[in-house]
């Protein structure tokens, strides 16, 4: 089943006097449960594509489908609902709400979804255990390392079992050891929960964890490799 389908996506930004094609007729289909790396140099269009798939940005033309639902023509409110219920996000930095503890950050999405308190607590403690941070449930982000913060962000992204997890350069601010540990966690969660993961990165090492590697350049997909076959 198709988790994500992009049809002829185009997006142009204006920078000074120049038009920058961030997405140039992108066609893409990702199956459910896949683990995909989007790779491109800076300005290559990977974040724009991720934002279009996540409903954070709208393309100039083309169509985006998530779990079979067309999303590029949804209202802001419907897009918010889609992000809340079907997509988990992990960003490069500023991933957590500073005034909430690790557990409260994880519960945040569930709370907005209206999940009862007891269920929220049960699920958040379980996921904290799964990402190895069970002792840090009451710690605020400022008292956690970068790696720990990203683990909490991953826990928050996965806790309500979204169909799709989008991660935009999640390891960019981490050292290589912590980045490796985070990728191990991603792959484990992908296998355990069968969620679809799309990770944007330009780190060659991170790409090795992906089952499928999509390379982009100047807003176009230039290479699509099934790494399971390799």
């Amino acid at each position: 089943m198709s988790a994500v389908r992009c049809v002829d996506l185009c997006k142009t930004y204006r920078q000074g006097d120049q038009d920058i094609k961030a997405l140039d007729h992108v066609n893409l289909e990702i199956t459910s449960g896949d683990f995909v790396c989007l790779s491109a140099p800076s300005g290559g269009g990977k974040t724009t594509l991720l934002n279009a798939i996540g409903g954070l940005d709208t393309p100039d033309s083309g169509e985006v489908y998530v779990a079979g639902q067309r999303i590029d023509n949804l209202s802001k409110s419907d897009l918010a609902d889609l992000r809340l219920r079907k997509i988990g996000f992990v960003f490069q930095a500023y991933n957590l709400i500073p005034v909430l503890t690790a557990r409260e950050n994880i519960e945040f999405v569930m709370q907005v979804q209206g999940v009862p308190a007891s269920e929220r607590r049960e699920k958040s403690l379980a996921i904290l255990h799964e990402v190895g941070l069970e002792t840090l449930e009451d710690r605020r982000p400022a008292k956690m390392s970068g790696g720990q913060q990203q683990r909490v962000a991953v826990a928050r992204a996965i806790v309500s079992r979204p169909e799709l997890v989008l991660a935009d350069e999640p390891t960019a601010n981490l050292d290589s050891k912590t980045a490796g540990e985070l990728m191990e966690l991603f792959t484990a969660l992908n296998e355990r929960h069968n969620s679809t993961f799309i990770i944007a990165t330009h780190d060659q090492h991170i790409m090795t964890y992906a089952k499928r590697l999509i390379r982009m350049l100047d807003g176009r997909i230039v290479e699509d490799i099934d790494q399971r076959a390799a």
């Binding site: 996540g54 802001k76 918010a80 500073p98 945040f108």
Partner: peptide
Amino acid sequence: VREIGLMLALGMKPGS
């Protein structure tokens, strides 16, 4: 601003 952006990205509605 970033925090507000994060909350919006996570699915919180502007009214909230």
